[in-house]
């Protein structure tokens, strides 16, 4: 089956896909550089990640296996809707399992399981320009990029330390890609920044409303900005996952029905996989592992 009758494969017409692919090729050729593209209206509101969806639609092949996550989970409304969208318009296989996917569209997280060369990570980006809040004029930020004039970004980090005693930016933490372009990694936690660095997977970023795509090709240097005396560091927890005992994953605090709280992996596939392998936390009994 070809997906939804009356619609092209993966919704977008072939000409639009070619246009987006051309933009993506350019983005891959200039790591971290924001490439304008003719963003199309999608049958979803902007907040739903139309940039990422257009990127996914443009690169999706019939044999691809798609995973969609939102806040690390495959089951949130946003993830379910996007997955259903591609199910109906492209009829591709979908999966929850990170290692089975060839394309992973994501909002807010990078999976905990290391990615490989055969995978592409597509990020939904609300604000592609990392300097926007400091310099609202696009003509100016474009020039700053052209000249690699990024002192402004350090002004922001300086101000963080002056106000809070440490760099308070915890999401969408700015990075320098391949030693050249300043880039907003989309609102992933800074916990995930090290995963951007030297990743074997191709990483593509799409911003629908702002009409920009950018990319980190495989095996590219990605450094998080910092100061010598305030080096970049990732979030750490006192706790381990209450369900799978993981001490190396990004944890979400969950309020329990009884009013208590627990910390669990934000990456639900990671957590499930660990539980299936027999790891147990304080809040669950060992899973039945079927023979």
């Amino acid at each position: 089956m070809n997906g939804l009758p009356g619609y092209n494969f993966a919704y977008l017409d072939e000409q639009t896909k070619r246009m987006i692919r051309r933009a993506l090729l350019k983005a891959v050729a200039i790591p971290g550089y924001q490439v304008p593209f003719g963003s199309r209206e999608m049958p979803l509101p902007y907040g739903w990640g139309t940039g990422g969806i257009q990127v996914t639609a443009s690169i999706l092949g019939r044999k691809d296996v798609l995973k969609v996550i939102d806040q690390g989970s495959d089951d949130t409304t946003n993830a379910v809707n996007i997955r259903r969208f591609f199910n109906r318009t492209a009829d591709v296989a979908t999966t929850d399992r990170t290692e089975e996917a060839t394309i992973i569209q994501t909002r807010h997280r990078i999976p905990e399981k290391p990615l490989n060369e055969n995978q592409i990570l597509v990020f939904q980006v609300p604000l592609p320009e990392p300097m926007t809040r400091l310099e609202p004029h696009e003509a100016v930020t474009r020039k700053l990029h052209a000249l690699a004039d990024y002192g402004l970004m350090h002004v922001k980090l300086y101000e963080d330390i002056a106000r809070y005693g440490h760099i308070a930016t915890t999401y969408d933490y700015p990075v320098l890609v391949n030693g050249r372009y300043l880039m907003a990694p989309s609102p992933i936690p800074k916990f995930d920044n090290p995963k951007l660095h030297m990743s074997p997977a191709l990483q593509l970023f799409g911003a629908g409303r702002e009409k920009r795509v950018y990319a980190i090709p495989p095996w590219t240097r990605v450094e998080s900005l910092d100061f010598e005396d305030h080096p970049f560091s990732i979030q750490r927890w006192q706790q381990v996952c209450a369900l799978c005992d993981a001490d190396d994953s990004f944890l979400d605090e969950v309020v329990l029905d009884g009013g208590g709280r627990m910390f669990v992996c934000s990456d639900s596939d990671y957590c499930r996989t660990r539980q299936a392998a027999g790891h147990t936390g304080t809040e669950n009994t060992p899973m039945e592992v079927s023979a």
């Binding site: 004039d149 002192g151 402004l152 350090h154 002004v155 300086y158 101000e159 330390i161 002056a162 106000r163 910092d226 100061f227 010598e228 005396d229 305030h230």
Partner: peptide, 18 residues
Amino acid sequence: SAGANVGERLMAVGARHY
């Protein structure tokens, strides 16, 4: 802040020690 205003040029030319 005043400090960031004064420090901006230093950072623009590569100062990285807060």
